[in-house]
Design a protein around this nucleic acid. Sequence first.
RNA 1: GCGAGUGUGGUGGAAUCGGUAUACACAUCAGACUUAAAAUCUGACGGCUUAACGGCUAUGCGGGUUCAAGUCCCGCCACUCGCACCA
Length: 823
Amino acid sequence: MEQQYNPKALEEAAQTHWLKHNSFAVKHDDSREKFYCLAMFPYPSGKLHMGHVRNYTIADVIARYQRMQGKNVLQPMGWDAFGLPAENAAIANNVAPAKWTAQNIDYMREQLRQLGFAYDWSRELATCDPDYYRWEQWFFTKLFDKGLAYKKKAEVNWCETDQTVLANEQVVDGCCWRCDNPVERREIDQWFFKITDYADQLLADLDTLDQWPEQVRTMQRNWIGRSEGVELTFDLSGQPLQVYTTRPDTLMGATYLAVAPQHPVAQQAAAGNAALAAFIDEMSHIEVAEAAMATMEKQGMDTGLSATHPLTGESIPVWVANFVLMSYGSGAVMSVPAHDERDFEFAQKYGLPIVQVIDKRSSDASASCAYDASNWQDWYADKTDVVTINSGQFDGLDFQAAFDAIADALTDSGKGQRAVNYRLRDWGVSRQRYWGAPIPIINCDGCGAVPVPAADLPVVLPTDVAFDGVSSPIKHMPEFYETQCPKCGAAATRETDTFDTFMESSWYYARYACANNSNAMLDAEANYWAPVDQYVGGIEHAILHLLYSRFYHKLLRDEGLVDSDEPFIRLLTQGMVLKDGAKMSKSKGNTVDPQSLIDRYGADTVRLFSMFAAPPEQSLEWSDSGVEGANRFLKRLWKLAHAHVAAGPAPALDSSALNDVQKSARRKTHETIAKVDDDYGRRQTFNTAIAAVMELCNELGKLDDSDQSRAVIDEALRAVVLMLNPVVPHISHALWPLVGGSGDILDARWPGVDASALTRDSIDMVVQVNGKVRAKMSVAADAANTELESMALEQDNVQRFLEGVTIRKVIVVPGKLVNIVAN
RNA sequence: GCGAGUGUGGUGGAAUCGGUAUACACAUCAGACUUAAAAUCUGACGGCUUAACGGCUAUGCGGGUUCAAGUCCCGCCACUCGCACCA
């Protein structure tokens, strides 16, 4: 063997071995438990960045670890190949998106190969491949037939100068990124999926995802935003105006209504009111992103209309307010300024009346609960310990009683009813872009929107196009859009919009299982591998991608394509990779290129550092010197193994002949196996697993070269190589036969823990006086509590602190500490 | 603005169920080896204090619960992620 650790040579040798033996290709096998491990596939942006390296290393560690548990492990890889950056690159580099994407895929595939990831490449897919997106088009037509895909008008960011739709990220400070002109909102026809039909299931099934991070489940719950309230109707001179509220208990305090600028009532009023029309027009120059809506200055204007309060019959004004979302509820809200903070601010700004209708019923006499209409207090919006006032017949009720009484009164008078509302909106899947899967619809003057028949799929996106970067080429290609109606045969036009790229990423995990099936979207193989046992990806996908995938999986299930309810059993959300405390980005100039590190140190070092520097869920601060440290450890490991082997075969281990130091080293070996097993499998804290192996190696290095020491080292080295194999598979592949392992380490079984090696005769315990550590003592492992107590009291330094005080209590925590409470 | 997180030495982090704070690394310093440097090996390493034993103090800030709090509760501050057309 080579004396020097030479990563370049040994990594190439390992990768060649895997390639030659087709080591990661898997198939259906009922004799073993299946394990489907998946990392979110990359957008082929050009080259791998550190976030990719981290993501794919985490998944690879899990995949290789599970394989060592004897499971049939599938780990595929592919490309999320449609999207905006290809269009931007097309303009910048004058290269067609298809060609640019294909080149990037080729380069990045080679990088992944160099990192040694255990992928079954025979299942590779790229979403821009018609063989992939044809099934998505086919599935869309199924959903269309079921009424789950429908068309409606929706707002987009529109740049009048460029005559094009802008993505939210293409709007900078309310202006177009290309020409810097203010964007406006424009309504256009768009296709939607009825995800709201599945809101209840998506919410309820979150409870079954007990192997997902709680924070992700909470975020999804809040995003779905189920609320129970009342839908009620205000009369607007004979015309009904519907509002939804979760606080009917405060209805008697509603002093005005607020409608969105896009609301038909606002539009009607503006027709005869130039000032209002100008205001509404001004409000249309705000990008559609909700964050922009929520942070802008709250503005409004009186429509001059008034509505009749459904309970009091009083007349209240109707205002247009820029913060009312047309897309939530009915686009109109009742405003109760005394008990809603935003309404409160708005009423103060425009001098609208404020009527207090709930009062604090505080048990705490010192609490100041006097109502003051000039300053907002949190308790104004409370639902607990409150009582209704100024509400006529509804006075004196708590939240629930008032809610019920008012909801009943509205129901009885036919002016409203209880209703469940969701914050979740239907999923808009249309994009007015070129580089995406064409929406398989033909628009016919006579027949309307007609889905493309299955036999005519896929609708292939032309790739040999001239791209000006502003508008989609297929919108100007009669040879693409001119066609005949499949129903009546009349001349008709194809839809030129393409799908949202979340469409492709919502079902790719299932397609990997039958990637080469050209006859069906999914088959029995897909059902064998699905659901994914372990999914790994960035926390930034916590809501959208993961919610859409969950939805899509239920759609696939309802179409009979899979049996399971959820796509991902266990989820690991990895943190960001930072450099100098900030996210790596070209604009900040703080990027680290993984390629140069691979070239310099080898893949194992890069993998090791990525896993060692931080737990996977936290952000990871990149450190060049930390990488050197990782490399140093691998060199030491190489030397340790080499030195051991060079001294000749180790004698057989005789556990009864070990001295205390050897016994301790052997105990450490088996404790480490148990810990690393737990860290990889249950905790998924790879950093602590690596630290534990480093500790073990440090201890092994201190053993002498006596026979039994060498026997202990011999056993430990095999365990070390097995434990490190998931993280640094190349060096492990090379060391495995050297330290006496047989067969391919890929399929070696995880080392077993010898329980007899774990026993200890004595334990170190701590003695505290009033919670402060005052002494340490070594005690027999089986010492009784009373014995521990008296030993603790005997300690010199403990006695010092007990002088002149009375012992009140002694707390013994076996195996840990004795705390003496005295004063 | 709303929703969800994070905050521990000079740095990355550990402390898994409320029980010895700072494991494992990085950096730095000192020593060994060397003509020298690199590499490697050994040792020191939160702060204040002590000749030493030891003591005091410290987990973003301010309170609280507890025999015991980095961990639980309340209130702040800072940063990160998401907000539906970036992926």
